[in-house]
């Protein structure tokens, strides 16, 4: 079925078909429940509950369906997790569809890291739709890594919605490595003084994959800060739309916003589109956006190959030279190494 998804906050000319994306999604009818594993050494610092809800859920992606589960996690006041809490979903031939919602509330002055992963025991087409909502209360810190690498045939939708209160900070590391149709929507409301968010995003697009990213941060109060950084590579017939918006609302004096995308194009069969918007109704702010792209620098390649590296190895190194600035932001070393392995396999 055809769906029109991921509408941008402000419309522009229709010629480039970037205001939204029209995709064919084959959503399996529900068959079997997926297994969830939650690994955490400090369960006493969290309140966890699972709802089974049947009501229609919407997100800014614009797709409506019934949820399977809603996972509610509360990080208790003043508690700090020493190790990350890992949430893992399993797909099998029968459990091939997942509509899940992970809802995290960080209470005042808490500190926690979550890792959301998927394990697939099947090469069949899988449909996954993650809705990830977070509320970060005063002085709290919430760090979430999402690894999306189910399989080449899967359709993967991720909708993230954040509300960030006074002096609170939320970070997402989003590794978008595999899948056919990949639609991600990221939306953050910086609600109070000194609220801050950051998004570190790596994508790899190959074969016939379609990647549509639609990111938005609203800055509402003084001294808000946002950083949305994306690095990606595209090869084969991959199509990518990068849409990112920083909206400086009136009243967000002394705020800072930065959005950035750099994409490395490895074939001349790819299509790379970008729409980095800056909207501003406040005088005393500083905002910047920058999108750049190009192919692998031949001089760099030559230099590396003159030191004995194969073209493949050299290219790999150049790709990592781009990704490293983001990979270094992954605080969990184990996960970082895992991601590096996954990326190496992909390229």
């Amino acid at each position: 079925m055809k769906y029109i998804l991921n509408e941008t906050p402000v419309k522009t000319t229709n010629g480039f078909m970037i205001n939204n994306i029209s995709v064919d999604l084959d959503i399996p009818t529900f068959y079997k429940l997926n297994i969830i594993n939650i690994n955490c050494n400090e369960m006493d610092k969290l309140d966890i509950s699972i709802d089974k809800v049947n009501k229609i859920e919407t997100s800014r992606i614009g797709l409506e369906d019934t949820l399977d589960y809603r996972l509610n996690i509360k990080v208790k006041k003043y508690e700090e997790l020493n190790d990350p809490c890992i949430i893992e979903y399993h797909f099998t031939n029968e459990a091939n569809k997942l509509f899940n919602n992970i809802n995290i509330v960080s209470e005042e002055s808490s500190k926690a890291k979550f890792i959301i992963k998927y394990v697939s025991e099947t090469e069949n087409r899988i449909f996954n739709y993650l809705k990830q909502t977070n509320v970060v209360n005063k002085n709290a810190l919430l760090d979430i890594s999402i690894i999306s690498n189910i399989n080449e045939e899967s359709d993967n939708l991720v909708a993230i919605e954040n509300i960030v209160e006074e002096s609170a900070f939320i970070n997402h590391n989003f590794y978008d490595l595999k899948g056919k149709t990949r639609i991600s929507n990221y939306y953050t409301e910086l609600k109070d003084i000194s609220s801050e968010n950051s998004l570190n995003n790596i994508y790899i697009g190959k074969s016939n994959s379609i990647i549509d990213m639609n990111y938005l941060t609203n800055l509402n109060k003084p001294k808000n800060t946002t950083n949305m950084i994306t690095y990606g590579i595209l090869k084969d017939n991959a199509i990518k739309n990068y849409k990112s918006t920083i909206d400086f609302k009136s009243g967000c004096a002394k705020s800072n916003g930065k959005e950035f995308e750099n994409v490395l194009l490895l074939d001349d069969t790819v299509v790379s589109k970008s729409l980095p918007m800056l909207l501003c109704t406040e005088e005393d702010v500083s905002g910047s956006h920058s999108v750049s792209s190009g192919k692998v620098d031949n001089n760099q390649l030559f230099y590396l190959m003159s030191r004995g590296l194969s073209k493949k190895e050299a290219t790999k190194l150049i790709i990592f030279s781009k990704f490293n600035s983001l990979l270094n932001k992954e605080t969990n070393e184990e996960l970082r190494n895992e991601i590096i392995d996954l990326i190496e396999k992909e390229i």
Partner: peptide, 9 residues
């Protein structure tokens, strides 16, 4: 507002 659309093929 700054609303640039870029398409590279």
């Amino acid at each position: 507002d700054t609303i640039p659309v870029n398409r590279l093929e």
